[in-house]
């Protein structure tokens, strides 16, 4: 569904990512893990067009979208849940979700809205509240809801676990795997390698702007190099005990 070929992105003179190739098939749940500053967010942002690429191709459903302006990419069926959630704090929950459907017809948005609120009952409860008043976990749910309202084929997720309590992280991931079971393709970027690999089918490891490893999630989890680098010696996380 998505095929990124030898993509390079520069920030000024600094290489953020170099020669990155990633492919995602329909219905897959793929995780990209890496440490701070490895280029994870840059990759997602350049797929969405928020940062210009220097080189390479981004092919989505057989079309090269890398030259399209960022605001038009959602209409191809890609949605991004950005890093740090970035909901609209001064708008109500409902308005936030509506904005996610900006590129769609009103009638489509209205019918999808019920579905979304059914999936996230907490948002239904708070739909008239200002989004800035929600808790971190609720904001994350809202950001996902806002991305889902445009009925995307591919959902890009940037660090869903950032700044959230372990229990909430688990909740978010459970929602994601429910979405995956409903047929959504998910490409997720995560520092929290354990959480991501536990739910994903496949994973890529990025370091210093390059993909250094890829494979099935269970293979990656049991890989000693990964264990050392990302999971720590005592890699069981608290929320798992």
């Amino acid at each position: 569904m998505l095929k990124v070929t030898s993509l390079s992105v520069n920030y000024g003179f600094v290489n953020a990512i170099r020669n990155v190739s990633v492919h995602i098939k329909k219905g897959e749940f793929v995780a990209l893990i890496g440490s701070n500053g490895a280029g994870k967010t840059t990759l997602l942002n350049s797929i969405m067009g928020l940062v210009p690429k220097k080189d390479g191709e981004i092919i989505f459903k057989e079309t090269d979208i890398s030259k399209n302006p960022p605001h038009s990419r959602i209409s191809y069926g890609i949605s991004l849940v950005p890093e740090g959630r970035r909901i609209f704090p001064n708008m109500t929950v409902m308005e936030n979700v509506e904005m996610g459907g900006y590129s769609k017809k009103r009638s489509e948005v209205v019918s999808k809205m019920d579905e979304i609120f059914h999936f996230f009952p907490i948002l239904q409860e708070r739909r008239t509240q200002l989004a800035g008043m929600l808790s971190g976990g609720e904001q994350q749910m809202l950001a996902i809801a806002r991305a889902l309202i445009s009925s995307p084929d591919l959902l890009l997720m940037d660090e869903p676990s950032m700044g959230l309590a372990p229990l909430v992280v688990k909740e978010v991931y459970e929602k994601l795997s429910m979405l995956k079971n409903m047929g959504l393709t998910i490409f997720l970027v995560e520092q929290n390698a354990m959480a991501a690999l536990k739910y994903a089918d496949r994973g890529y490891v990025i370091e210093n702007g390059r993909i250094i490893m890829q494979g099935k999630s269970d293979e990656l989890i049991s890989d000693n190099e990964i264990k050392r680098a990302y999971l720590g010696k005592e890699y069981k996380e608290k929320w798992e005990r």
């Binding site: 970035r86 609209f88 001064n90 708008m91 904005m99 996610g100």
Partner: peptide, 21 residues
């Protein structure tokens, strides 16, 4: 819808772009 898009841009232009605005 368009008025709300104005407010969305006020809140967060990047997020507004992601939404297709």
């Amino acid at each position: 819808k368009y008025g709300k898009a104005f407010r969305a841009c006020y809140d967060d232009q990047t997020a507004a772009t992601i939404c297709g605005i």
